[in-house]
Write a protein that binds this DNA or RNA. Structure first.
Lengths: 196, 196
DNA sequence: ACCTGAACACCGTTCAAGT
DNA sequence: ACCTGAACACCGTTCAAGT
């Protein structure tokens, strides 16, 4: 086993803020899943004793909740704010569906949290809010395109289902997806089907 | 915390076989995720000391590997054998896509394993085989329908992506899915889109 | 305000000893 | 062939004491 070097700390005096723990927790989730968020391993990584963790957080669950709030914001409001500058709702939808191809750290976090949402109440709650906000926004795009509410809701569901399915396949069964150019062509076809 | 009663054992003499541990492991995965497969908790549940576990398996990973082999068979060959009796490949595809609505224990296991596949080599390997076998079979159905190989492969991917997306939404964000009758209508629409 | 260090409980693993 | 019981390491949590 190779040891990670201690992380850089935010404060100049070498002391930690809660945000340092939260960032480290999200990295651990992306790298090793929810089980990777351990008080002792994170303490080692941050170069302090685990006792110090309990000054910042009540327990492991409190750290998780704080870290999840960061992820939630990054994966809903911040994305919606970014895409808001695009005028045509058709282009907004295309951009959102295609963003599955970016494959950032947040998708790995998504997959890790998806499984945990079935059993962990804190994760379940955050995950439900994220799903709801995304569906709501997708629906609003389809409404802008002139679809009546009921139809728009179905279109949003179709798009979101395909998006979620693709995220999972990319991370868990990449061999079943076409590579490079063929994947781009596949995305084109998918976008055509999902954006009227 | 409520304690589970000790499980019934397979052998009459009260001694355990490896299969007893494997079944208990799959139930634990469905109930609590991969982290639920613990040597000590399972031992308690089966009514033996954890020392006895190590007579049957080399370690926790060996139990996992054996349990996964059971899941793999249940979710590939046994399903394919069941659907093989249906003559029309169109009906086979419809049945497979609609099976997402059944919502058995195996879907919960799927979601738990999906996240673990990113990090755990044993799970990754099983998951890759399952995904490959399913894609291969879907593709063969579309080929039977007269689609050329390249098109059939895309059709299979479209169907499998939607299937995986729906499994996840049903288990992780059920509030975003229409209820009962509306869900049946949604599945109709999805099947229409995916089966030519 | 933030951190250390020691204590304790829980669980994975090993192993000598039992039936 | 299958199981017990004791041992040890790892990690979550608590807390008195340090700066």
């Amino acid at each position: 086993m190779v040891q990670d070097p201690p992380m850089k700390r935010a404060a100049a005096d070498g002391r930690l803020a809660a945000a340092d723990w939260e960032r480290a927790a999200l990295e651990a989730i992306a790298d090793q899943g929810l089980a990777g968020v351990g008080v002792e391993p994170l303490s080692r990584r941050l170069g302090v004793t685990k006792g110090s963790f309990y000054w910042h957080f009540a327990d492991r669950d409190a750290l998780l909740a704080a870290a999840l709030r960061r992820w939630e914001d990054a994966r809903t409001e911040r994305i919606i704010a970014t895409v808001a500058s695009v005028g045509d709702p058709r282009d907004r939808l295309r951009w959102l569906i295609r963003s599955v191809a970016i494959g950032g750290i947040e998708d790995r976090i998504h997959v890790a949290l998806a499984a945990a949402a079935m059993h962990h109440p804190v994760v379940r709650e955050v995950f439900a809010r994220v799903s709801h906000r995304r569906m709501e926004y997708l629906e609003s795009c389809y409404v802008e395109l002139g679809e009546p509410a009921r139809v728009a809701r179905r279109s949003a569901l179709l798009a979101y289902t395909a998006y979620i399915g693709l995220i999972h396949l990319r991370l868990e069964a990449p061999d079943e997806l076409p590579g490079d150019k063929a994947f781009a062509a596949y995305l084109d076809q998918l976008v055509e089907r999902l954006v009227p």
